[in-house]
């Protein structure tokens, strides 16, 4: 069973994504903000894929991305960024900083699933 790590500060987004992924047979761990994510990342087993929101309190998705890419454990984990539609410059920045892909919010659940599958082959 593949495992996926979700970080988003909106509880409802976490719920939707978690429901969708568990239905597809993935195992899901979630964190409610960047700080919480960082705490989990140091102790948890490395997931097969991670999904980071960009705008979050305490620590934004870019910082978290940078943190993950600097950890030797995490540097090859596929990371998909969730960005708000109004911030197109974020997309460039996300890809430049080592994100594997991005999805714009509001998102189409099926599209997100397809992108996740592609990263996991």
């Amino acid at each position: 069973m593949k495992s996926i790590f979700i970080v988003d500060d909106d509880e409802d987004i976490r719920l939707i994504i978690q429901y969708m992924l568990e239905r597809e047979g993935y195992q899901v761990t979630s964190a409610k903000d960047g700080k919480h994510a960082q705490e989990l990342m140091s102790s948890m087993e490395k997931p097969d894929l991670a999904l980071f929101d960009v705008m979050m309190p305490y620590m934004d998705g870019f910082e978290l991305l940078g943190y993950a890419r600097n950890e030797s454990e995490w540097d090859d984990t596929p990371i998909i960024m969730l960005t708000a539609k109004s911030q197109e410059s974020d997309i460039v920045r996300a890809l430049d900083n080592g994100a594997s892909d991005y999805v714009v919010k509001p998102f189409k659940p099926n599209e997100l699933l397809a992108r996740i599958r592609r990263q996991l082959h």
Binding site: D12, I13, I16, K105, P106, F107, K108, N110
Partner: peptide, 14 residues
Amino acid sequence: SMWNHYFEIVHGDA
């Protein structure tokens, strides 16, 4: 209120 929030999160078939 909550239904509208979900409506804002997702797109498409959802």
